[in-house]
Structure formats: structure tokens, C-alpha cells
Design a protein around this nucleic acid. Structure first.
Lengths: 238, 238
DNA sequence: AAGTGGTCTAGACCACTAC
DNA sequence: TAGTGGTCTAGACCACTTA
């Protein structure tokens, strides 16, 4: 038999599907509702927990239990264990910094629409290569808000990524990553770094990393040799 | 105060971190362990539930509760509500089929390493465009195992994707998506379709869709006009 | 301010699975 | 086949949030 709490959840889902209950409706208080259904409050709470995990209900103290969706939401989970992996960076890669400078927001297209307290950003130019190879597979520019500019002193210690330095130095963690992947014609500068012809196809990734509280940690613009790099994503659904 | 069950979880985590408990160790039965800790079994189970969700414990009937990791695993969640969104397809896109044919496994590079019961696949050539535009932004080839070849009869009804047709016709759902994004020089054929010069940079996506049970649903190879398409991913961590 | 969800207890029976 | 996690009950007190 399917457990009682699962039956309760299914019944509630059916009532929502039928239109009897709508988004925004509030359910009775747990104690009252449990009595009404003839089950213990613990059992009802198991059902609610399931529906909350599925994105159908939202529970808030004092505000009650509210319907926020008409059907279980699909859950997408990345088959990924680390941020490096999320960014498609293997463990055998090496991050070498070419130089740093301070740049104003409006001089860099990738910073459009963003703000730094001072209006300036720390720009870090770097390349990434496999440990046993000489020619980099990617050319990177990382922009860090003025708040974190202190990492400039530590930058020689950056082994694999700038964000790791910031995580360690400032005790914050990356909570969100937004990436945009496109194809571009390789620029003259990047063609020299990557060893591919100018104008040849190259993979381009713009990434923004945010902390748990939503503050921007870094903006990264990178060009990749498409023969040696592609972006893999592996997503499990529900 | 932090709840008792959270304290229990933290204490267990600390015991694992200290090396007192190792991966593979089994914990005492819940009833016994709860008594040992001086809490009710329900409370202990709340702690276990938290640690199981974090990927530290695995609970199996009769086999007991086992430690499977030394620290909470990072959880990566895509900020995505639909598979179309996951595949970076807006709702205003249109899928137009150019033709179909049957091809043997070894004639298509993208099928290398895969098997179809008959050794043949249904190849569907198609393009994708915005509803209000004439020139497609992508040129697609979708390969479907012989098992699903029956959809050929329904193919005129494919509005947005081949996998949707298979989901409906065979009553199975996509449970996993693996994608690889790269940059290529546009082929002569694709340059005609996309209206970009031959040899110009183009975005290339190889995707494999699997059912919940791991069986392959479709393999898709697509080329995109990089001026009109990029792959966006938005991932929340833990 | 108080009603709500959050937490916790001490029991009980059960179905399943790994021994 | 028996020991285990899974489920369920009927209570209780509490902290917090929001009406």
C-alpha cells in the first residue's frame, strides 16, 4: 500500500487539479485540518513536507499553509559535485595570471548594467592550461568589485580560480552561477594566446558568480579553443 | 536555539570529521541509538533525514544506516522549470521538419558507441526558428532508436520538439539530459539554412536525452547561429 | 498579542529485505 | 525469518511571525 501521507498528498493534488483549490488559497491550520481528515498531525505534516518539496505548498509560521502551484514542479539537479566541475574545469588545470589593473565600469561591455561601489573594478587577465601542456586552452578576464580588490595582494596564490581566493579571503561562498555560452570569431589577442587563427571559431563564456545573499562575487569573460574545450552539462530531472 | 535534531546532525557530522566515524561505518539501529542519545526516535529520524538529504547518510531497510560521505555534499539546482528551458528553447520557437530517413549506427559520428536494437535509427532533419522570423536560428538532426520509429507517422504534429512526441506517444518521461556545447566552423549545408557564411563560427550542441530508467530517448545534433542563440545556465548551489 | 507552524515525546504496528 | 527502517498516533510545549 502507498503510505497514508502519500495518499493525503495525492488527494490534495487532485483537489487542486480539479479546481476546487486554487493558487493562493490557504489551507486550514494543521491541527484542525488533521482532525478534519481523521489523521494525526504528524502524518499530515509528512504529506505537507512532500508537497512543499515538490513546490506545491509553502508553509509559513503564523501565515499558514498556502498553495503556490497547481502541480508538482519539475526538479532539475545537476550531476555535479564542485563549482569547478560546474564550470567544466577539470582538476588538472592550471591558472596563470598575466596581470591586473583597475578599470571603470563603462569601459568593459561585460560589466554593463552592473555597479561597483567605487565605479571601478579589478581586472585580472589570465590563462588556463592543462598541467602537462604549454599552450593555454582558454584566455580569461575576470572582473572583481572594488570591495574584493584586496585579493590583488594574494593573487600569486590563485591556483585554479579567482573565486576560490575570494571565498577564502572573505569567508563567503558561491551560491549561484549564471553562465552564457556562445560562439565567436577569435580575436587577434586571443588567437596568439590559444594558438588558433584569428577569426577562427572560438567558444566564449560569460559567467557571473554570486554569493548566497545575492551580492556579485565576480564576472568572468573567457575564450576557449573549441578543439580542446567544450561545456558539458548533465542534468537529472525530478 | 537551534533545534535538537539539528544539533544531533551537527554532532554526528563532527564525529565523522574527527575520524571517529568513517565512510562505510554503520550506525546502531534507530531505536537503540535514540535511547543511547536520550532522545525520541522521531527526533533522531529528523536528524537522519537532514543528513540523508545532504548526502552524508544512506538508510536502507534491514541494512541499517550507513555513512556514505564525510561532509555535506554540495547541491546544485538548476533554476529551470521545463526541459525546453533547460535546452535554452524559448516558447516562441517553432520546429519545422525537413525530412526523415533511416540510417545505420556507423554512418553517424554522433551515434558512436550507442546501440539501437536493429542497428538503425530514425533520422529527423529539422530547423528551428522564432515564430515571427523566416530564417531559422538552428539546424537540427535528431536520431531516434528504432524502438520509437513509430513516431514517424505522427511527425507532422511535432510543434516544438521530437522528445515531446515520444513522451506522449510512448508514455515515458525524460529523466536525464546530457549536453555538450562547442564551437565549430559552419558547414556549407548549415550556412544555407542559417544564413551565415560557410566557415563562420557557429555554436554546436550535442544532446542526449534519457528516460528515468536510463534508456536512450533521442540523440540530437544541432548547429546554431551564434548571433541569435546562446546557451544560458543558471545554477543555485546548495 | 495570539494563532500558527516547529519541535519533541513515548509509544505502537508493519512491511520489507538482507542475512 | 527476524531485525530494520517506515509509518502512524495522540498528545505537549514553544517560538516566532504577522495580522
Amino acid at each position: 500500500m502507498t503510505p497514508l501521507y502519500a495518499q493525503l498528498a495525492d488527494r490534495l493534488l487532485a483537489r487542486i487539479a480539479s479546481g476546487e483549490l486554487k493558487i493562493g488559497d490557504r489551507l486550514p491550520p494543521e491541527a484542525e485540518y488533521a482532525a478534519e481528515l481523521g489523521v494525526s498531525r504528524s502524518t499530515l505534516r509528512l504529506a505537507f513536507a512532500e508537497l512543499e518539496k515538490a513546490g506545491v505548498l509553502r508553509r509559513r509560521k503564523r501565515a499558514g499553509t498556502e498553495i503556490v502551484a497547481t502541480a508538482p514542479q519539475r526538479q532539475f539537479r545537476m550531476a555535479t559535485q564542485s563549482i569547478d566541475e560546474l564550470l567544466s574545469l577539470g582538476r588538472d588545470t592550471e591558472f596563470a595570471i598575466l596581470g591586473t589593473r583597475s578599470v571603470p565600469t563603462d569601459s568593459v561591455q561585460a560589466l554593463a548594467g552592473l555597479t561597483s561601489e567605487t565605479g571601478y573594478w579589478l581586472e585580472i587577465s589570465a590563462v588556463r592550461r592543462l598541467r602537462d601542456e604549454k599552450v593555454p586552452f582558454s584566455a580569461n578576464r575576470v572582473y572583481v568589485p572594488a570591495r574584493f580588490a584586496g585579493i590583488e595582494a594574494l593573487i600569486g596564490r590563485a591556483e585554479t580560480s579567482v573565486f576560490q581566493l575570494i571565498e577564502e579571503a572573505f569567508g563567503i561562498g558561491v551560491g549561484r552561477v549564471r553562465q552564457s555560452v556562445g560562439a565567436v570569431a577569435c580575436s587577434a589577442r586571443d588567437s596568439e594566446i590559444l594558438g588558433i587563427p584569428e577569426g577562427a571559431p572560438a567558444l566564449c563564456i560569460d559567467a557571473k558568480l554570486f554569493a548566497d545573499d545575492g551580492t556579485l562575487i565576480e564576472v568572468s569573460v573567457a575564450t576557449f579553443d573549441p578543439a580542446r574545450f567544450h561545456v558539458e552539462t548533465d542534468v537529472k530531472i525530478r
